[in-house]
Amino acid sequence: MLEGKVKWFNSEKGFGFIEVEGQDDVFVHFSAIQGEGFKTLEEGQAVSAEIVEGNRGPQAANVTKEA
């Protein structure tokens, strides 16, 4: 698991990027966000996630919002 913060997230398109210190930004799709209801993230929000290899490079999986 790694910790980072949301760089930006487009709720209409359902994707965005997470900033991780010392690494390239990581793509995040709404389907990777854990929880019930409408899955979205806010800019600057702290999150933790796993990194997996997607079709277009590294992407976030099992994204959870930090308190």
Rank of each mutant, 00 (worst) to 15 (best):
Q23C: 12
Q23G: 11
D24F: 11
K7G: 03
V52R: 10
Q23M: 15
E12G: 09
Q34L: 14
F27V: 00
A60S: 03
T40P: 03
N10S: 11
L2E: 04
G14H: 02
A67Y: 12
E19Y: 11
F15Y: 14
V28Y: 04
A49C: 15
F27P: 00
A60I: 03
I18C: 04
G57C: 07
P58Y: 09
G4F: 04
M1D: 05
N10P: 03
G44S: 05
S11A: 13
N10K: 05
V47T: 01
V6S: 01
G57L: 05
R56M: 09
R56D: 06
Q45H: 08
L2T: 10
D24Q: 13
T64D: 06
A49S: 06
G16W: 02
A60C: 06
K5S: 06
F30N: 07
P58K: 13
E19C: 14
G37E: 06
L41A: 00
W8D: 02
E53N: 13
V20K: 04
G35W: 08
I18A: 01
I51K: 07
G14M: 02
I33M: 04
G4D: 01
G22Q: 05
A49R: 02
G35F: 07
P58N: 07
N10C: 11
G37F: 06
I51E: 02
E12P: 04
V47R: 01
S11T: 12
Q59H: 09
T40F: 12
K7L: 05
H29W: 06
F27T: 04
M1W: 13
E43C: 15
V28T: 02
Q45P: 00
S11E: 09
R56G: 09
D24P: 15
E43V: 15
G44N: 06
G16T: 01
G14Q: 01
N62Y: 10
I33P: 05
T40R: 06
V20A: 06
S11W: 10
K13D: 03
E3V: 15
V26P: 01
A46S: 12
E21W: 11
V20F: 15
I33K: 00
A49V: 15
G44K: 05
E42H: 14
T40Y: 12
D24R: 14
A61N: 09
G22D: 07
A67W: 11
E53F: 14
V47E: 00
G22W: 06
A60K: 02
I33D: 06
K65W: 09
K65I: 15
F27G: 00
F17I: 06
V63S: 03
V20R: 08
G57M: 04
G14C: 05
F17W: 09
K65Q: 08
A60R: 01
A61M: 12
V20M: 09
G16H: 01
Q59A: 08
F9H: 02
G44E: 03
F27C: 08
Q45K: 04
A49E: 01
K39S: 05
E36K: 11
I51M: 09
A32Q: 10
A32W: 06
E43I: 15
Q34D: 09
E66G: 15
K13N: 06
E3Y: 14
W8L: 00
G14T: 02
Q34P: 06
Q45I: 08
N10E: 04
A67K: 13
V47L: 03
D24V: 12
Q59P: 04
A49G: 12
V63F: 00
I51W: 06
E12L: 13
E3L: 14
P58Q: 08
F38R: 06
N55C: 15
K13Y: 08
S31Q: 07
K65F: 11
F15G: 01
F17Q: 01
G54A: 06
M1V: 13
V52P: 01
K39M: 07
P58G: 05
G44C: 09
E66K: 15
P58M: 10
T40W: 12
G57D: 03
Q34R: 09
A60E: 02
K5L: 09
E36Q: 10
L41R: 00
G22K: 03
G14L: 03
G22A: 05
K7Q: 03
K13L: 11
E43G: 12
E66M: 15
S31C: 10
S48W: 15
Q34K: 10
F9L: 03
T64E: 08
V20N: 03
T40D: 05
S31N: 07
K13H: 10
H29I: 04
V63P: 02
G57T: 02
F17D: 00
V26K: 02
V52E: 07
E50L: 13
G4M: 06
V6I: 08
G16L: 04
V26Y: 05
V52C: 14
Q34Y: 09
F15R: 00
E21T: 11
M1C: 13
F30E: 07
N55P: 15
A32P: 06
E36H: 11
F15W: 15
K5Q: 07
V6W: 00
S48M: 15
S11N: 10
N55M: 14
P58T: 09
E36S: 12
M1A: 11
L2P: 04
G22N: 08
G14I: 02
I33N: 03
N10G: 03
N55Q: 13
V6C: 07
G4K: 00
G14Y: 03
I51S: 03
G4Q: 01
N55A: 14
E42A: 12
V28P: 07
Q23H: 14
E66V: 15
F9Y: 09
S11C: 14
V52S: 07
E66A: 14
A67L: 12
V28S: 01
F38H: 08
K39F: 06
E21V: 12
E12H: 12
F27W: 04
T40C: 13
F30K: 09
A60G: 05
N62W: 11
S48F: 14
V6N: 03
E50I: 15
Q45N: 07
H29T: 00
G14F: 03
H29F: 09
E3W: 13
N55F: 14
L41E: 01
V47H: 03
G44L: 04
Q45Y: 06
W8M: 00
V20L: 10
Q23I: 11
F27I: 01
N10L: 05
G44D: 04
Q45D: 12
S48A: 10
F27S: 01
S31V: 05
A46F: 14
T64A: 09
Q45V: 09
E21S: 10
E3A: 13
I33W: 01
S31I: 06
A67S: 13
E50V: 14
I51T: 04
F17P: 01
V63Y: 00
A67R: 12
S31T: 13
E12Q: 13
K13P: 01
E21R: 11
E42C: 15
G44R: 04
A46K: 15
K39P: 06
V26T: 02
G54E: 04
K5W: 10
K39Y: 04
A46D: 08
V28A: 02
S31P: 07
E12C: 15
N62V: 11
N62D: 04
N55T: 13
A49D: 02
G57S: 06
I18F: 02
I18S: 01
F38E: 07
T40A: 07
G54C: 10
G35T: 09
A61Q: 10
F9A: 02
I33V: 08
V26S: 01
